[in-house]
Every structure is written in structure tokens, then in C-alpha cells.
Amino acid sequence: MIASALENLLLWGIYPLWLLAGAGDYLCHRVTDIEHSSGSHESWYHVLQLLVLLVALAVAMLLEMNAMTFGVMVAMVSAHSVLAHMDVSYTDGRRYISPLEQHIHGFMNVLPLVAVAMFGVLHWDEIGTGFDAPILSLASPLTLPSVLLLASFAVLAGIPILEELMRTRRHRAKPSRRHQAGLATIK
């Protein structure tokens, strides 16, 4: 019963909240004119963050859980956190990061950590087998919900990030009047 509740919380709570935070972050980037401020450099950080979380999610959905696969998930979520720090460090001073966007970033950084911790609790026995289990074996059977979850992640999180990257690459970070006015208010 607790396992079922945790699975439902992951699927119907944590995951949708993370997607909503991502949508909010995307809108903040549009409002603060990312294409004319921090540009494609910042967008590449977003692509990398998406990819490491996609790997973590794919491992969770497609592979048998054991210490090695869980370690890969933890490494990917940790890499996401490091990339998020690098992203904001690069962007600070190049583009206005509002209190709302900072709050959204908090959700986007913490929710994957919470999700992987909950996943670890759900699969404690399998992870506890250590390195005795096959390192990389496909989960069987591959389920439709797993495929749909991966596809929804790629579409709902991936399309906005790729659109932003294409938009920023088109504009090549030429400062706009709106961006210059925003930086003037920060000083």
C-alpha cells in the first residue's frame, strides 16, 4: 500500500509539478528575452540538464533496478544539480533572474532529488543486492506506461527546450532595448 502511494505521488505529483515548473521557467526565459541576453550558451545548459534527467528516467523505466542502475540515476540527478548551478552562475548578470524564476528553479532542482530518493525507497531491496545482479539488463516486460512516460518527458520538456535553443541560436545574443532596460534597473 505504501509502495503504491509513493508510485502515485511520483507519477501524479512530483512529475507534473516538475513539468509545470519547467513551463514556468520557459515562460520566464521568454519574458526576460533570453535570445538577446544570455543566448544559446544558457540554452545549451538547459539541453544538457534535460538529457541527464532523460537518462535517469530511462534507466528507471527500462532497466532492472540494482545498485549500479540506481547509482547511474543518482549520478545523473547530481549532474543535473551541478549543471543547474553552472547555468545560473553563467546567466547571473547577463539576464534578469526574477524572484519568481529563482523560486521555480528551487522546484526544478529539488524535485528530481526527491524523486530519485523516493525511487530508492521503492526499490530498496533490489538496490541492496549490490553488484551481484546483472549490471545492465532490460526490465521485462517493457510496459506501455513506461514508454508513455518517457515519450511525455521528451515531448513536454524537450520541445520547449529545443525551441528555446533554436530561437537563441537565431538571434546570437544581440542585446535588445528590453534587455538593456532590464539590466539598467538591476544596477
Rank of each mutant, 00 (worst) to 15 (best):
G39K: 11
G39D: 12
H41M: 15
H41T: 15
E42A: 15
E42P: 05
E42K: 10
E42S: 07
E42C: 09
S43Q: 08
S43H: 07
S43G: 06
W44I: 11
W44D: 02
Y45R: 08
Y45M: 09
Y45T: 06
V47K: 00
L48N: 11
L48Y: 07
L48D: 05
Q49L: 13
Q49N: 13
Q49I: 14
L50K: 11
L51A: 15
L51G: 08
V52I: 10
V52S: 14
L53W: 06
V55G: 02
V55R: 04
V55T: 07
A56H: 10
A56G: 09
L57Y: 00
L57C: 00
A58V: 00
A58Y: 00
V59H: 01
V59K: 02
A60V: 00
A60R: 05
A60E: 08
A60W: 04
L62F: 11
L62K: 03
L62Q: 04
L62C: 09
L63F: 12
L63K: 07
L63R: 11
E64I: 05
E64Y: 03
E64C: 03
A67V: 04
A67N: 08
A67K: 02
M68L: 15
M68N: 08
M68R: 09
M68W: 15
M68V: 15
T69C: 05
T69F: 03
G71E: 04
G71Y: 00
G71F: 04
M73G: 05
M73K: 06
V74C: 02
V74H: 01
V74G: 02
A75K: 03
A75Q: 07
A75R: 01
M76L: 06
M76T: 00
V77N: 00
V77C: 07
S78G: 14
S78L: 12
S78D: 00
A79Q: 06
A79Y: 02
A79K: 04
A79I: 13
A79P: 06
A79T: 13
A79C: 10
H80E: 09
H80L: 10
H80Q: 05
V82R: 07
L83H: 07
L83A: 13
L83P: 09
A84C: 09
H85P: 02
M86I: 01
D87T: 06
V88F: 12
V88C: 04
V88D: 09
S89W: 13
Y90Q: 05
